[in-house]
Design a protein around this nucleic acid. Structure first.
Lengths: 139, 139
DNA sequence: ATCATTGCAAACACTTTGCATACGC
DNA sequence: GCGTATGCAAAGTGTTTGCAATGAT
């Protein structure tokens, strides 16, 4: 994993500002699938003038450029993930924690199989699998 | 598919009221993964006094009792599906239509494989795969 | 008569928009 | 200096809550 957030942002066609770097850095270093509010509160200490609007705008920008992906596992709010490798998301319905499930390289095969059921002529752009359940610490 | 909505509702432990039957019937006869608002508007003709609150409450009740499932494929609003058999959801990013993708009986095998990656001691309650892309009519 | 369901209105939560200010090249 | 990014406030949208009225047994 490379730590040069500035150039990763620039490489995806986005101008790296201080706020953008801070948000991307937070996402890369904290794999907690944060909501906008979590990021906002976490970075407020470092950037007292930071606004939620900037966090919203920045994350949408990142998602549009493929730098992060949106996670739809909550019913109300969006979450964000800097890990764009194929993986499954698991949400514990007791402690509400959201975890990445690594799939030992099997997921691209599984995903292709899922896409093979699509009607002829469909184009798949994004595929995500979510599991809701109870994690080992809560069961 | 059996048409006796009254007893299907009763069997899941819910008292079948006129509104509840109408909402469940609509879901069973229209596989469009409707939002609360779609259901509300559609049934308003038949039940002019129907309120959104009732639709919200009823769908939550249905989901809690496993009579319907929630579909998280939209970023903003929840959708509902009376089809609780394993299937994949596909959303066309051009026409916004949401389609069920039947998986010729393969999905329970695929889903078990996905669950096999969960850490020891996890319990899976619900698993869903979503695909975003472009449907044959839009490509 | 009693208890559950319904429905209005208000509150709530998350996100987007409009616009003026501040920043970076 | 100019164009973009930022941030406040307000508006917008989806959902939940409080509570009184209604309905079913």
């Amino acid at each position: 994993m490379q730590e040069n957030y500035f150039s990763q942002i620039a490489d995806s066609g986005i101008r790296p500002s201080a706020q953008r770097i801070a948000i991307y850095k937070y996402l890369c270093e904290n794999h907690v699938h944060p909501t906008v509010d979590m990021i906002y509160k976490e970075l407020s200490g470092e950037y007292p003038a930071l606004s939620r609007t900037t966090v919203y705008n920045t994350l949408k920008l990142f998602a549009d450029h493929g730098l992060v992906q949106t996670v739809h596992i909550d019913e109300d709010k969006l979450r964000y993930d800097a890990n764009t490798e194929p993986h499954i998301h698991f949400k514990c319905i007791k402690c509400s924690k959201i975890m990445d499930i690594p799939c030992s390289g099997q997921l691209s095969r599984i995903n292709s199989e899922c896409c093979s059921f699509l009607p002829e002529g469909s184009i798949a752009r994004k595929i995500q699998t979510y599991i809701w359940g109870i994690c080992p610490s809560c069961s």
